[in-house]
């Protein structure tokens, strides 16, 4: 019985989210684009997350290199270190870590912001003044996350690879030039493009979930907290699900 209710709630939520997403696409192509707000959101989303994304990427590159070295040394293959690390960074670690950080930082930010606007009736006020808050608040934010996440993920790739360079040079020396030659020889378009494409989906999922949770926040301060919280949880989970689907698709397309 209690389980029944949980399923019903889950399915309702799923239906609502789908409807919300469809509405996003409908509103996207309507007149009156809110360009100014869109650029403001891009700036905030990119700017606010860049330091965190950068530091994490640097550390991930460094740590991954240091930890992979002993295994490769065992097989006498330590010259493969840059190649191995770069492929795992670009294909998987950078995009997913960036997306998770953004789910935490941006997703909760959007959830809380829209949630408190909902609770204090500011969204209703936009509604009754005939200004279409969906277009102003939701469309701009979802577009901004969709576009900024690939940008952040690429920056994270670059910084992570630099971290790996430092890691390689802690023990042993590989020149700057040789390191990058090895990295670029190891990477093919089949590594970079699918990983780039999936970051668009990560960004979209983070934006849509954050906006949905905030926009449909229940009344009260507690509702705002819950929106922010569940935005993070659901968005993080979705990042992994999208990642899983993406790996299957690239596999099927023979891009591995």
């Amino acid at each position: 019985m209690a389980q029944d209710r949980t399923y019903t709630k889950f399915l309702n939520e799923l239906g609502d989210t789908t409807r919300f997403t469809l509405r996003f696409f409908r509103e996207l192509f309507k007149r009156n684009q809110e360009l100014e707000e869109f650029f403001r959101q891009c700036y905030w989303i990119g700017y606010k997350s860049l330091p965190l994304v950068g530091i994490t990427a640097l550390i991930m590159g460094l740590v991954l290199t240091i930890q992979s070295r002993p295994t490769l040394v065992e097989f006498g293959a330590q010259s493969l270190l840059p190649a191995m690390v770069s492929v795992s960074l670009v294909r998987e670690i950078s995009p997913v870590i960036t997306a998770l950080i953004c789910a935490g930082k941006i997703g909760s930010g959007i959830g809380a912001e829209l949630g408190s606007m909902r609770v204090t009736e500011q969204i209703d006020a936009m509604d009754v003044s005939g200004t279409n808050p969906f277009k102003y608040l939701v469309v701009t934010r979802v577009l901004a996350t969709t576009i900024m996440l690939p940008v952040l993920s690429n920056l994270s790739n670059a910084i992570g690879l630099y971290g790996a360079y430092l890691g390689v040079n802690i023990r042993g020396t590989v020149s700057w030039h040789l390191y990058w030659t090895q990295v670029f020889n190891a990477l093919s378009f089949g590594d970079v493009i699918p990983s780039l494409i999936k970051t668009f989906f990560f960004g979209f999922a983070i934006g849509i979930i954050g906006c949905y949770k905030g926009y449909h926040s229940s009344k009260g301060t507690e509702g705002v907290g819950r929106s922010a919280n569940s935005a993070v949880v659901v968005a993080s989970l979705l990042v992994f699900i999208i990642d899983l689907i993406a790996v299957q698709v690239t596999d099927l397309l023979g891009l591995t």
Binding site: M117, T120, E121, Q122, A125, V128
Partner: peptide
């Protein structure tokens, strides 16, 4: 139609 909210609902 103007609407004045009980809570004012200014965009803070």
């Amino acid at each position: 139609v103007g609407f004045l909210f009980q809570s004012n609902a200014l965009y803070d």
